[in-house]
Design a protein around this nucleic acid. Structure first.
Lengths: 123, 123
DNA sequence: CTGAATCCAAAATGATACTG
DNA sequence: CAGTATCATTTTGGATTCAG
């Protein structure tokens, strides 16, 4: 994770919550998986412009460890691996809803960046 | 900021929201300022066990830049500087409420860490 | 296609000493 | 008290290469 990774002992819930979404692409991964329910590795890669394979894999592994993401491997050739949110991951995403709305608001307020403004939650 | 700092263009609001709280101690700073309304530098320092002066100053400056925190300097001796949340900072804190609750839940669920479990929001 | 492994660069954080 | 400055360390992220 990012933030120098505290990984507890946490002083407050916000600290604990932020810890599991620390990482350059985790918010986006959550967003993508919430939007599409299930995504293959390459699809996620396309959904996160600029992410490297290494980081995508690493983040997915961490999120799996944290019980947010489920990884399903199909014994096919060529290989197919599908990622989706666990129930735990879905509740996290809902908990992030207000923050997402706040973020959209902030972007608008300063008008310095444009965003593909769908709603803060599209599930 | 942390996370390799994206600083937009953001793909979604969550991304934008997370960006302003990226930094090892920002969640705690928000928490502290929300709990006490106003805190002096040394008080914040004591509230964030392990933070270095450098990081505290740096984070406070960034949060000030982001319009979350207000800094008031009193021309006294010894010096006194008080920090508090701006209206913008307070709305952010509210948006983080659900995440905080989720975090408390997570801590309890895995029971691996103990936390001074006040409520997720004490404002 | 979905990675793992390795090496490297950049960013964040920490420690310490010093100042008005 | 509330910082600033500097240097060292730790973490993160990116690029590239290789493999089942």
């Amino acid at each position: 994770m990012a933030r120098g990774s505290r990984r507890g002992p946490y002083i407050c819930g916000i600290d604990a919550g932020l810890d599991v979404v620390s990482g350059k692409w985790k918010g986006l991964i959550l967003w993508e998986l919430d939007a599409h329910r299930v995504r293959r590795f390459a699809e996620l890669r396309r959904g996160l412009p600029g992410v490297s394979e290494k980081m995508l894999t690493q983040h997915l592994r961490e999120m799996e460890q944290d019980g947010l993401v489920e990884r399903e491997v199909y014994a096919e050739v060529p290989p197919r691996v599908e990622y989706s949110l666990t129930e735990h991951g879905r509740t996290l995403n809902q908990a992030l809803g207000p923050l997402g709305a706040w973020g959209v608001d902030r972007i608008r307020r300063e008008g310095s960046e444009k965003v593909d403004v769908a709603e803060a939650s599209h599930s």
